[in-house]
C-alpha cells in the first residue's frame, strides 16, 4: 500500500493558479504548495511564504560575524601582541571598522544562502511531485497546485473533488514514494 503525498491540479496560466489558490484558502485548505515556471508573487503570498526568516538569519549571522571580527582584532592588538604605532591607542577602533564591516557582510551573505537552503530542505535529490505525470512542464508552461496530505482535513477523495471543481487541466494523486519495480512477492 502506498501512502499519499497529496493531490495535485494542473493549470494553464498563473491567473488560474492564483484563483485556485484563493478558492482553496477560502474553502479552508491550509497545507498547500504551488509550482510555476516563474515567480508568482501573489501565489507566494497566499501560501504564506515569507523571506523574513532568512532576513533574521542574515542579521544574526552578520552581527555575530561583526562581533567575532572586532573581538579578534581587539584581542590581537590589545592583549596578544600589543604594538605602539606612533602613540595611537592599542584599541584602535577606526582601524578595526573596515575588517569588521567586510566580515559582517561575508557572514550575512553566506548565512542567507545556507539558511535559505536549510529552510527549503535543499539540496534534495528527489521529491514525490516529480512522479506526477506531466510535472516536467512546471518548468515550462504549466502551473500546479498541490494539496498536501498533512492538511488536517485532508481526504484524497475530498481534495480531488474540490480541485476538479476548479476546472483544471487535470487532477492527479501524488504518491509519497516513487513506485520502483521490485521483485515479485
Amino acid at each position: 500500500m502506498t501512502t499519499i503525498h497529496g493531490v495535485m491540479a494542473e493549470f494553464g496560466s498563473d491567473e488560474r493558479l492564483v484563483a485556485a489558490l484563493k478558492a482553496a484558502r477560502a474553502a479552508g485548505w491550509r497545507r498547500m504548495d504551488a509550482f510555476a515556471p516563474f515567480p508568482v508573487a501573489e501565489a507566494a503570498e497566499l501560501l504564506g511564504a515569507r523571506g523574513n526568516r532568512v532576513a533574521w538569519i542574515a542579521i544574526t549571522a552578520g552581527l555575530l560575524g561583526a562581533g567575532i571580527a572586532y573581538g579578534t582584532q581587539w584581542w590581537l592588538s590589545v592583549h596578544d601582541y600589543p604594538i605602539n604605532v606612533g602613540g595611537r591607542p592599542l584599541h584602535a577602533w577606526p582601524a578595526f571598522l573596515p575588517a569588521t564591516t567586510i566580515v559582517a557582510i561575508l557572514w550575512a551573505a553566506a548565512a542567507s544562502l545556507i539558511g535559505m537552503l536549510v529552510l527549503n530542505r535543499l539540496p534534495r535529490l528527489s521529491h514525490p511531485v516529480f512522479a506526477a505525470p506531466g510535472f516536467a512542464r512546471a518548468s515550462e508552461d504549466r502551473f500546479f497546485l498541490l494539496i498536501q496530505a498533512d492538511d488536517p482535513r485532508f481526504g484524497a477523495a475530498a481534495a480531488t473533488r474540490f480541485l476538479e471543481s476548479l476546472q483544471p487541466l487535470r487532477v492527479v494523486e501524488v504518491p509519497e514514494q516513487v513506485p520502483t519495480p521490485g521483485p515479485p512477492t
Binding site: 606612533g86 595611537r88 577606526p94 582601524a95 571598522l97 573596515p98
Partner: peptide
C-alpha cells in the same frame, strides 16, 4: 566620508 576619516587617522 569614513575613508577620509580613517586616512587622516592613520596618517596623523
Amino acid at each position: 566620508w569614513f575613508v577620509q576619516f580613517i586616512t587622516v587617522w592613520m596618517a596623523d
